[in-house]
């Protein structure tokens, strides 16, 4: 093996392929163990929990934000539902109030109409009664007038007063026709 190295390292022997030079093994092993164990301890105790903590913190923050957004969405959804329910309720109530009102007014109008009709009927009946009474009275008067008239006519024509019975009979006979 061609070696042109002038610097003869204390551990390295001329002519030996350095990676297989067993004289350097002890120091390499010692330093490897020291540095690697140091690295392991620093990583396990400080560095990795730190980086992992940062990542977990960010993940937690994202999850929290998502959960919050979700709860806000649920809240707004329920608010919309409540609003729509209130709207529907109000509409229903308005409808029922309108219906009630209409029914009430119809009933009122009906009763008023009935009352007036009844009053009219009563007045009508009274009037008819009055008419009948007047008619009867008039009819009763007709006989008297006829009797008197017939008596006067006959008296004027014949010069003598006829018998009341004959006139009565004659008038009754006439009224019968």
């Amino acid at each position: 093996m061609a070696t042109t190295a002038h610097t003869e390292a204390p551990g390295g022997h001329k002519g030996t392929f350095p990676p297989f030079d067993s004289h350097t093994f002890a120091s390499q092993l010692v330093w490897l163990v020291i540095t690697f164990v140091l690295l392991y301890v620093v990583l396990a105790k400080v560095a990795l929990p730190r980086v992992g903590g940062i990542i977990a913190e960010r993940q937690k923050r994202i999850d929290d934000d998502l959960a919050q957004a979700n709860s806000f969405k649920t809240q707004s959804d329920s608010a919309i539902a409540a609003y729509e329910k209130a709207l529907a309720d109000a509409r229903n109530r308005a409808q029922s109030i309108a219906n009630d009102m209409r029914e009430k007014q119809t009933a009122e109008a009906e009763s008023v109409r009935k009352k007036i009709e009844d009053q009219f009927n009563v007045k009508l009946a009274d009037a008819e009664k009055a008419i009948a009474a007047t008619k009867q009275a008039a009819m009763a008067n007709v006989r008297g007038i006829a009797t008197d008239a017939a008596k006067a006519i006959v008296e004027r024509l014949t010069g003598k007063a006829p018998a009341d019975t004959a006139i009565d009979a004659a008038i009754t006979d006439v009224l019968k026709r």
Binding site: M1, A2, T3, T4, A5, T7, A9, P10, G11, G12, F17, P18, P19, D21, T24, S27, Q28
Partner: peptide, 11 residues
């Protein structure tokens, strides 16, 4: 030009 020299362990 020695390609092995780079692997030398130096105290």
């Amino acid at each position: 030009v020695d390609p092995i020299h780079q692997f030398q362990i130096i105290d």
